[in-house]
Each structure stands twice: as structure tokens, then as C-alpha cells.
Design a protein around this nucleic acid. Structure first.
Lengths: 183, 183
DNA sequence: GAAACCATGTAAGTTGTTACATGATTGG
DNA sequence: CCAATCATGTAACAACTTACATGGTTTC
């Protein structure tokens, strides 16, 4: 699902400006999606051209006019249609996992640092999601997705805590007996 | 980490052709990374230009020459240097979660279908990873990353099994009470 | 007085996918 | 006989990100 469709989806909930949509991305989707202004603003222009949203300009003192977008009936239909299509596979790119993959090229200290950093980051994301889970104004979908994120992140933390010694130990062995291979 | 760096990483393990690198992506990284020929072949050309790998052409009957790439000492240093840099954040794009986010716009049947599909897919990926976990020739990093994937996917399956009723029920509320049976 | 927030937008650059181009061989 | 595997590569396209451009206001 591209940024354009996601913007349309957020506009099914309430009218909003590009700036507000960016904030919505950050507080609620940030753990599995993100978007920059450079993709949001063009997306909103395009949706307007296509008649899926309308734009109302609110003049403001000494600031660019605030452009408030509102979804049209056609836009709502288009979005529901998009939701109906079978979703594509998740795409995950994790520098962390890619690095761990080659743990045998790193020192035990480097691996420990890497995992410490990951745990800190994951715990802080977890804390953020738990805060979000408390907000009762959220749509049912939001709450489910937040709970999903919490479940996954908890599993990650548990895994790292319980198994980190395995990979930290493996590094100690370096190029262990039998690894005379490719050189 | 881009495809170019990842190719370099795979070549720290053994020499390989572009075709073989594609296979390596599929059997071992596919749950958190993927790459097409369209990115692998140019990446290998570029690595060769930069002197990080060398290329040996093996002529084959009635097929394009097989080009076997081997990492150079400079390449190995460059890769270890890349591993040392702090990893960026994970990037996840999940059409499934994006769709669930707007569950209130879908019928209970659609949501159930969506979750059934997700469970099937996740279980099949899980089975694949469990097969991979059995392979004893894997590097320590591979095994750790595979186990990591298994832990996360198990948490996802458990979450969906235990909590799906929450979101399936929420969809019921989005429609006129009593009209659920007619859907 | 610095940082963060509000507010929009464009242009250049990155990174990657899909489709095209070519074609033999092997297994079900 | 059809699909998959082997084998490489290019060109067009897609979708985003980053940096640039502009500038007042509020909060620490």
C-alpha cells in the first residue's frame, strides 16, 4: 500500500492537513510504516486532481495557507476497494539482522553493543506503544495494530535476552575448527 | 544496508555467481530481506569496478558465461567496516497491518478472510524457517537470525489466534446491530 | 537564544522492482 | 509438453527520501 492510499485512509477518519497527516503517521503507524513530507504533499495533490479528496484553503497570518483535505464519496469508495484487494507480502529490511547474520566477523564486544542498542531501542518503542494503547479515542483497528506491535516486540526482547549468549559466544570462537573455507 | 553491501557480505563466505547469490537471498534472508536480479547484477558489476571483488568468467556451452565473484582483501575490509557502523532502524511495510488498521470499513467476513490468509502464510513461512533451522552447515549468524524469525512469527500466530475475535467483533459493531447474520 | 513546532512545497538523488531480451536443459 | 532451473544483463518505471527554499511562533 503506497503513501497515497494510506493518506486517503487517514482521511476516512477526519479531515486533515498534510502536516497533521504526517503526525498521524508518527503516532500510530510509525512502527510499521512511515512517510515524509516529500511523499505526503505530492500524494495529496494527486488525490485532489483525481477527485478523491477536496481541499479547503484556510488563510493564516504570516504562514502558508493551511490546506485542509476532506475525502469525497468517490474517495471513500476507492479506498474501500483498495482494502478489498489481497494484501502483498510484508517487506522488512533490518540492518540489525543483516549485521547479526555476519556476527562471526565481529568481536564479542561489538555484538554485545549491537544487542544492547537493539534492546534499548526496542524497549523504548515498546514503552511508546504501551502509551498509545492507553488512548481510548483510538479506532478499533488502531488498538489491534498497536497490540500486535506490542506482542511482536515483547517476543523480540524475550528472544534477545534469553538467546544473546548464543551469538555472543559464537563470536568468541571466531573462525572455529573446520572453517578453513573460502579465502 | 543495501543490496550491494549484502552481496559483499555473502561473498565473505564463499565465491558465487549472481545467480547463486539470488538463491542465497531466498534461502536464509527471505523473511527479512529480498533482492531481484535487477539489483544484484548491477551491484556485482559495481563491486568489481571498485576492486572489492574479482570476477572469473567460466565459459559454458550454449549458456551465458558463468561469472564467479570472489571477494578481495579490500572488499573484506570494506564489509567489516560497514558492519561496524550503527545499524539504521528497521523498515517495515505491511499491507496486512495497514488494512487491519481500517478494519471498521470491512465486513466481518472480509476480516476473517484476511486473518485466515495471514495465518496460513505465516505458518508456512514458519515451517520453512524450521526446516532451515535444521541445516547444520549454517553459519552461527544464520542460525541466530532464523531462530529470531521463528520467535517473532510464533508470537504473531499466537497473537492472531488469541485476539482475532477482538477485531472481528469490532467490525460487527461498525454495521447495523442485527444485520450481521445477513452478511 | 536555541530548539521545536507550525506550514507548504519542489528538485535531485537513491534504491529498488518489473518487464524485456535470449536461450539450452532437465524433470515431472 | 510444460514448468522450473540455469545464466546474464538492460531499460523503464516506481516510490520514496533528503535537502533545499521560506519564515513566523512558542516553549524551555
Amino acid at each position: 500500500m503506497d503513501v497515497r492510499t494510506l493518506c486517503l485512509g487517514l482521511l476516512t477518519r477526519s479531515e486533515a492537513s498534510g502536516y497533521e497527516i504526517k503526525k498521524a503517521f508518527q503516532s500510530g503507524l510509525s512502527h510499521f510504516y512511515d512517510a515524509s513530507f516529500g511523499s505526503i504533499y505530492p500524494a495529496l495533490s494527486r488525490l485532489t486532481e483525481e477527485g478523491l479528496v477536496t481541499c479547503k484553503e484556510e488563510p493564516q497570518d504570516k504562514r502558508p495557507d493551511k490546506k485542509v483535505y476532506r475525502i469525497t464519496p468517490a474517495g471513500r469508495l476507492a479506498f474501500i476497494d483498495a482494502l478489498g484487494r489481497p494484501p502483498g507480502h510484508d517487506r522488512i529490511r533490518s540492518d540489525f539482522l543483516a549485521t547479526i547474520l555476519f556476527a562471526d566477523l565481529l568481536s564479542p564486544r561489538q555484538i554485545a553493543g549491537l544487542i544492547d542498542g537493539r534492546l534499548t531501542e526496542t524497549r523504548s518503542l515498546l514503552a511508546e506503544l504501551r502509551e498509545q494503547a492507553k488512548e481510548e479515542t483510538r479506532a478499533a483497528g488502531d488498538r489491534f495494530v498497536i497490540a500486535y506491535g506490542i506482542a511482536v516486540l515483547e517476543a523480540e526482547v524475550t528472544f534477545l535476552e534469553e538467546r544473546r549468549h548464543v551469538i555472543e559466544g559464537a563470536a568468541l570462537l571466531g573462525r572455529a575448527p573446520g572453517s578453513a573455507a573460502a579465502d
